[in-house]
């Protein structure tokens, strides 16, 4: 017969307190380790796959709101004034000489001024912006559907992602983002130049920012200077597909 130690209530309590202390001390080491992060990333893959399953083909739209729903004070986050020379110069002449480049795996690279972009077919939508931190703001956006530009530039068959190169540095590193072609051709995916009926302010990304309504705020790159089509984003930044992705955040930010 196996003799088990008698577990009294008091002993069980003391034991569990000791374990809790040990667990707390060891927790942070474990919580931040690479192998734990690898296991946890299965959750992101699961989320991406399941959301792609329901959001991929039929491309349901993000909710659009009424003008009366617009936030009275749309919070500006991240960079609110880029300090790079290229941006300062563009800002200096009110973006008159600024041009958007569309390049990479395209058949016909484009270079467009703000006025040229504004002459293209536009879409206006009032949508909700959800920050990864937890807050939300509702704003109206006007811009060129990204799919239209990509069609104009002609995609090479190997193109898989659209990368957005931005004029701002965040914490010293260039801000950039990337999305797949399902999102790039979604009707609500815009390169927006106006917000709530006025030209985009500097704090919100003037002269051009991405709107990607079914993902979180950090995907919605501001100060876009160029759109590059690539087959892989491994050679950009730290290889994770975006500034915040390189700093641990999910590439697929649908949740």
């Amino acid at each position: 017969m196996i003799l088990l130690p008698k577990i009294t209530r008091r002993r069980a309590l003391i034991g569990s307190l000791g374990l809790t202390g040990l667990a707390l001390a060891g927790c942070d080491k474990i919580a931040g380790s690479d192998s734990v992060s690898r296991v946890l990333s299965a959750g992101e893959a699961f989320t991406r796959t399941s959301q792609r399953l329901v959001l991929g083909k039929n491309a349901p739209l993000a909710r659009e709101y009424k003008a009366s729903d617009i936030s009275p004070n749309f919070k500006a986050n991240g960079t609110v004034q880029p300090e790079t020379d290229v941006y300062k110069q563009a800002q200096g002449d009110n973006f008159a000489t600024w041009r958007l480049g569309v390049f990479g795996l395209v058949t016909k690279p484009l270079s467009l001024s703000l006025a040229e972009l504004q002459r293209l077919p536009a879409r206006t939508q009032i949508t909700r912006h959800d920050c990864v931190e937890g807050w939300s703001a509702i704003g109206g956006w006007t811009g060129v559907p990204l799919g239209l530009l990509l069609q104009a530039a002609g995609m090479q068959p190997s193109a898989r992602y659209a990368v957005f190169h931005c004029a701002d540095l965040y914490d010293g590193d260039p801000y950039y983002e990337s999305i797949d072609l399902i999102d790039a051709f979604h009707p609500q995916t815009l390169l927006a130049y106006a917000m709530n009926g006025s030209p985009l302010s500097v704090a919100h990304g003037a002269p051009l920012r991405l709107r990607l309504e079914r993902q979180l705020g950090y995907k919605q790159a501001k100060y876009v200077m160029g759109v590059e089509l690539v087959d892989s984003f491994a050679r950009l930044g730290k290889g994770k597909g975006g500034y915040w992705e390189d700093n641990g955040y999910e590439w697929y930010a649908g949740i």
Binding site: Q51, A62, R128, E213, Q215, G254, I255
Partner: peptide, 9 residues
């Protein structure tokens, strides 16, 4: 409901 992706669906 907090997921912008799931909200679209």
């Amino acid at each position: 409901t907090m997921s912008p992706g799931f909200d679209a669906f």
